[in-house]
Design a binder for these strands. Structure first.
Lengths: 102, 102
DNA sequence: TTAGAATATGCAAGAGTTTGCAGATACGCA
DNA sequence: TGCGTATCTGCAAACTCTTGCATATTCTAA
């Protein structure tokens, strides 16, 4: 169980360990988006956006809703945002640490 | 800035994306540990433990204190544990989700 | 309505880069 | 010297991005 939880967390963090995937998740705070919207918003190839979304989808971090030709992606568990906020807090603490060095 | 934060988070999560490193951090909740202690506790080669600790050290996730021939590692920013707890919460939600499927 | 073009998404393969691990070595301190 | 720690090397595995293609849906003009 201890091992299982570590493996889960490691796998989970691995899914988050990519700048575009992080940016996508942040963008999904405001609601759902399609591959095309994400592709344009971050100026990446649609195939690339689709690929990164697939990584998040495979880990059940995002889920999809199909409407016509479009597929809407959204975050399934809002707890994800707690985690991103904690990361931001660490980022700020880190900056404070560097600043106090000077 | 937006990009900088995403890059930081991605780098940060990458440092966490390893079962042993996660386990080490969890073990450091209770206080500091040496390479040797970690090596024995998780039954890995000292070189391996040192290598994973170096990854965490390079990202300032852990810091060291030297005492004679021993080097004690500990977590610099306790916010890390908030993050790990959020990950555990997601893990539990995930299990609930799977369970309610049945 | 219907054939053909355009759009949205997903899948797979390849080239280049990075990471993990084991083994060997080097360094610092008692 | 002996122990604890850190680093280097080489190989296998994993990751990223791009390209090309397949599928499904929508649009448009006849």
């Amino acid at each position: 169980m201890r091992q299982q939880l570590s493996d889960f967390k490691a796998d989970f963090f691995k899914a988050l360990a990519h700048p575009l995937r992080i940016s996508i998740l942040d963008a999904l705070r405001d609601g759902e988006l399609t591959v095309n919207e994400i592709s344009k918003h971050f100026d990446v190839e649609p195939a690339n956006a689709s690929q990164q979304l697939a990584v998040l989808r495979n880990k059940n971090i995002v889920v999809t809703r199909k409407e016509g030709a479009n597929v809407y992606y959204f975050v399934s568990d809002k707890t994800i945002f707690k985690l991103l906020d904690a990361a931001k807090e660490i980022f700020n603490n880190h900056l404070d640490g560097v600043r106090s060095m000077l």
